[in-house]
């Protein structure tokens, strides 16, 4: 099993009265959820989502397909909870996270998201956004209608196109790739990404040596920058690589198998 160090921080922000974000961490599954809608039932929706992930984390061998299935079931649970209680009608939540999955005998990351909560990957001082927001602005950027640097000022930046709690069941986007030693993941609600630029986030990640200090510092800066929304950040540091020998040259099969060509 891989070795990780995890830091989590959250803040209600300067405007909201309640924190509708939720987060979940275990040894191999990490996620945030940003609840919304209904009459203050957003926190119920995000709590359902992380409870679902907690169940998923108990599974012995997490497969990427399990994430997809769990997201669908989570969506139905939220819809059912909303239908059962009118005060929760219309509630929903984003979900974004990183888990460890075993494929072909090797550990891989599976990154997933529904909505506009994000997963970033930070390696060698460079920050890359793994997930693609399910928002109208992200689609406008993808279509080339607006530039990426215009997106966070756009009036529709908060209109999300997929969320847990909608019909039909939203599919999560998944990314699967092998582990790399020394990489760091940031999983965050849009309370972080709407307050800090990627460059500001990267500076904090570069400066803060540990996952807990990085998470706390990111949340603190997002609140200082305005804190207009709940902010939740999970930082995952991948400490030790699982496999060795990956950098050796590929051998000619005749040599590798000992046959004489």
């Amino acid at each position: 099993m891989i070795s990780v160090r995890v830091g989590t921080a959250t803040d209600c922000g300067n405007v909201r009265r309640i924190n509708e974000d939720a987060s979940f961490t275990s040894s191999h599954l990490f996620a945030v959820a940003d609840g919304m809608g209904g009459h203050a039932a957003g926190d119920v929706a995000s709590a359902i989502a992380v409870a679902r992930l907690a169940r998923l984390a108990q599974r012995a061998h997490l497969q990427p397909g399990d994430v997809r299935t769990e997201v669908t079931e989570c969506n139905r649970e939220i819809l059912a909870a909303a239908a059962a209680d009118q005060t929760r009608s219309g509630m929903g939540t984003t979900l974004a996270g990183v888990g460890v999955t075993r494929l072909g005998g090797t550990d891989h990351w599976v990154v997933f998201n529904v909505g506009d909560s994000r997963v970033y990957r930070f390696t060698d001082g460079s920050l890359v956004q793994v997930t693609v927001d399910h928002s109208e602005v992200a689609e406008l950027v993808a279509a080339g209608t607006i530039r990426a640097d215009e997106a966070h000022l756009h009036p529709k930046r908060n209109v999300i196109t997929r969320v847990l709690g909608m019909r039909p069941d939203p599919a999560p986007d998944l990314w699967v790739f092998p582990l790399t030693p020394g990489e760091r993941f940031v999983i965050c609600t849009d309370g972080l990404s709407s307050e800090l630029t990627d460059d500001q986030i990267a500076r904090v990640l570069y400066a803060e040596p540990t996952a807990p200090s990085a998470a706390q510092q990111l949340v603190a800066q997002a609140v200082a920058a305005g804190g207009r929304d709940n902010v939740t950040v999970v930082v995952v540091d991948h400490l030790i690589a699982a496999a060795d020998g990956l950098d050796e040259d590929t051998l000619q099969r005749s040599r590798a198998t000992g046959a004489t060509a």
Partner: peptide, 10 residues
């Protein structure tokens, strides 16, 4: 925040 009003087109 606003919930989705369109199907996921990505």
């Amino acid at each position: 925040r606003r919930a989705p009003s369109t199907p996921p087109p990505t």
